[in-house]
Amino acid sequence: MRVRKITLAAVAVVAGLSLTACQNDDDGTGQSAPSATSTSSSSSSSNGGSEAAGSGSAGSDQGSGTDSGKSTAGQGPAAGTGSSEAGKTGKCRTDELEITAMDSTIGGDPDGTVAVDLKNGGGRDCTLSGHAGVDLKTNAGSLSATRTGEPADPVTLKDGETVSFGISYPINDSGGSGVRITGLVVTPPDETKSVTLAWPGGASLPVTDGSGSAVKVGPIGSAGQGG
């Protein structure tokens, strides 16, 4: 019986050792798998981070190239705008014009005519459009000319060129002294600065009933057509 008990005990011990060895193997395997998984995950994460960084670097390079392109494109329209602005023709200013007046009456006409010349001396091309303002200084006060109603087309003057317009007025053949003219005031179209000139026409105007100005002004380019 003693021998049997010892044998059973030995069997139990061996079985226990085998069970322990199996458990240790299972535990090692269980721990080893997570370790491998963790390492794989870490490696994947590391690789993924590197790829992301690479993408960010590429994006930065592309962004830099795009910004450079925009900067270059921005300069193009600016240059075009500047060129367009330089190509525009501005209106003629009073200070750029040499304004003179002369008698242009043709014998036999019922009315007298004064031609006013505007010469571009501003060193650039400029444009005149419409009617100039015309006022006659008289011993009875200022008399403003009225427009003839003719079409007023724009006129572009190159530097040194001249354009004219006409002023018509009634000739004083009444035999009386009439209204004496002492000066001519001309204001170019779209300007507020005036030029005062000597009056080259007839010395006086016939006295009227004051119902309206008998002095007429034609549009720019209408010299001799102010009737």
Rank of each mutant, 00 (worst) to 15 (best):
L97A: 00
K158E: 10
G107Q: 14
I167Q: 11
V215W: 07
D153C: 08
V114F: 02
C126D: 11
G141I: 07
S129L: 06
T138P: 00
S194H: 07
Y169H: 12
V163C: 10
A198L: 13
L205R: 01
A203T: 13
E150V: 12
A223Y: 08
P189E: 12
E191R: 10
S164F: 03
A140D: 13
T187F: 03
G183S: 07
D135P: 00
D173K: 13
K193P: 07
D190F: 15
P206I: 04
S104L: 05
R147D: 14
T156C: 03
K158F: 07
V155I: 12
T100S: 15
A214R: 14
G108Y: 00
N172V: 00
A145R: 00
D125V: 04
W199A: 03
S174Y: 04
I171P: 00
G210D: 06
P154D: 07
S204I: 03
C126M: 10
S211N: 05
V185S: 08
T208H: 02
T138Y: 00
R180S: 15
G141V: 01
G221D: 14
G176E: 15
P189Y: 02
P206D: 11
A140I: 12
T162G: 01
A101R: 08
G160E: 11
G130R: 03
P206Y: 04
G178Q: 03
G224V: 13
A101L: 09
T148Q: 12
L136T: 00
G183E: 01
V207M: 14
L97V: 06
G122S: 05
D135Q: 15
L136E: 05
S144R: 07
G202V: 08
V195G: 05
L128W: 05
H131W: 14
S174I: 06
L97K: 09
